[in-house]
Design a protein around this nucleic acid. Structure first.
Lengths: 112, 112
DNA sequence: GAAAGAGTCAAGTGAAAACTTAACTATTTT
DNA sequence: AAAATAGTTAAGTTTTCACTTGACTCTTTC
């Protein structure tokens, strides 16, 4: 009974990864857990801005976070990228099938 | 000696796919070549807007286009999604490696 | 060859997204 | 307990992006 937008996971993942700063963060987090400050430091931006990016990443399922004392630890979440991989696999098989059949009938009939 | 932004391919691909309208277009183009008007018709938007999306898709390498008479044919370009797949595989192996080693030393030393 | 169809270009508008600032909370440190 | 650290929130600003409008070009039809 939810009337929410119910945005699809793939939507969130792609939007999250469309931003270069967030891709850098994913890169960094892939090496191991980091705090928000550690993520912010090398990026010319305030802590507040970095946190906003982390929140976007978390909503997308690309990372998990956990508050430990006054620090928030950010870890990679395999779920996020597997959503992307599944989407990718579906699309690929979709047109690879089509392209296979294509070589058989390379003569295009001109439409007008 | 190019001082250009030289935006990376993956940047363009992810930005292109971040938009739902463009994902629909990719979907449609995956079924076979279409004209810009055909892409525009089912989407509540002007031809000009649809064309702008097609241009973004083309710059990203997700589609190719070719002008035939007064019509522009849009086709899928496998290059685009393979860029995405490669990026994905790199990142995944990056942290899968890390996660493997992780099970060996599940005792985290508390940092404070 | 005039009209219609399909696309193209350049500006401009509006809304979403990225950032900043400033005030505030919850932990550690000293 | 005071000061410093790390994060959080809300509000406002700036930038980016999707989309429209209107003028124009190049085919194809009639």
């Amino acid at each position: 009974m939810l009337k929410e937008p119910a945005e699809k996971p793939i939507e969130r993942v792609l939007q999250a990864l469309a931003d270069g700063t967030r891709r850098e963060m994913v890169e960094r987090v892939s090496q191991g857990p980091v705090t928000v400050s550690e993520l912010a430091r090398p990026l010319a931006m305030t802590l507040a801005a970095a946190l906003q990016h982390v929140q976007v990443l978390e909503r997308s399922g690309l990372v998990n976070t956990e508050k430990q004392g006054r620090v928030r630890l950010v870890k990679i979440d395999p779920e996020g990228l597997s959503v992307l991989r599944e989407w990718l696999d579906e699309r690929r098989s979709l047109w690879e099938k089509r392209l296979d059949g294509l070589s058989a009938m390379l003569q295009e009939k001109p439409k007008r």
